[in-house]
């Protein structure tokens, strides 16, 4: 489904992603974990087309999309959420989702309305439809991020710390939505700090560390790995260092 080949990105002298190779199989839920500064969000920005890589290739559904703009990537079926929600704050919740339903498919406004409504119902935001998105609570903002991505009818869904800052109960609600989307045939790649949540849904874990893949396997395998524990705890213990 998605293949990253020798992907690299640096900011000035800082190498954030270093020749990373990763294959995402169709229909899987892949969880990406890693300490702060490991390059998780940069990786998503590269896949989503918000950043251009300095080296390497991105192949999606057999097609090289390395140079494709973010909006074309939506059209071929890649939907993403942002770690810090980015609502269209002056527009209503309904309009936020409608933008995605219209532009993700190239539909007219009239034909996208049904899709927008369905996604709002699916994500539990229908009762908030008339509210300006700037006034939503954190949970609803997270739901809206998810709703905007789902309105694109993605084949590949990229979730960036969707569970961060939420209670367990709130998180479970989102997990249920993602599970349903997944069972509809969508491949999911989910970056998350809240490992507890991710463990319940991901079929495979990849640990990102120092801009490359450090470990990969089933969640249980990866979390039992002594090296992973060391990297995770060690790096988290020196969070100040990893940010430099």
């Amino acid at each position: 489904m998605l293949e990253l080949v020798g992907l690299g990105r640096h900011f000035g002298g800082l190498n954030v992603i270093k020749g990373l190779d990763l294959t995402v199989a169709e229909g899987e839920i892949l969880g990406i974990i890693g300490p702060n500064g490991a390059g998780k969000s940069t990786l998503f920005n590269l896949i989503g087309g918000n950043l251009a890589p300095n080296s390497g290739r991105i192949v999606y559904a057999g097609r090289d999309i390395t140079r494709m703009t973010s909006w074309h990537r939506c059209r071929v079926g890649i939907g993403r959420t942002f770690q810090i929600p980015r609502p269209f704050h002056q527009m209503t919740v309904y309009e936020n989702v409608l933008v995605a339903a219209v532009h993700g498919s190239g539909n007219t406004v009239a034909r996208a309305k049904g899709r927008a409504q369905a996604v709002l119902e699916q994500t539990g935001l229908w009762h908030r439809q008339d509210m300006p998105a700037g006034r939503l609570s954190l949970l609803d903002l997270k739901r809206l991020e998810l709703a905007k991505a789902l309105a694109l009818t993605p084949k590949l869904l990229l979730l960036d710390e969707l569970a961060g800052g939420l209670t367990d109960a709130e998180c479970n609600g989102l997990l249920d939505i993602v599970r349903k989307v997944h069972s509809g045939g969508t491949t999911v790649v989910w970056i998350e700090h809240v490992i507890r949540a991710l463990r319940r849904i991901a079929g495979r874990f990849v640990v990102l560390y120092g801009g490359n893949i450090f470990a990969s396997g089933t969640p249980d395998e990866v979390l039992a790995d002594a090296r992973v524990k060391e990297v995770y705890l060690g790096a988290e213990g020196n969070a100040g260092d990893s940010g430099q």
Binding site: G48, G49, N50, T69, S70, W71, H72, C74, R75, R80, F82, R86, P87, F88, H89, Q90, M91, E95, N96, L98, V99, A100, V102, H103, G104, S105, N107, T108, V109, A112, K148, A149, A151, L152
Partner: peptide, 27 residues
């Protein structure tokens, strides 16, 4: 502004990168 292009423009006004990420052709 009422058209598909227009709703994309309104989204761009509020957050350009997010508009691009939901398929609005910014160019």
């Amino acid at each position: 502004m009422r058209s598909a292009t227009g709703i994309g423009l309104t989204a761009m006004r509020d957050n350009e990168e997010a508009a691009g990420a939901v398929g609005v052709n910014l160019f």
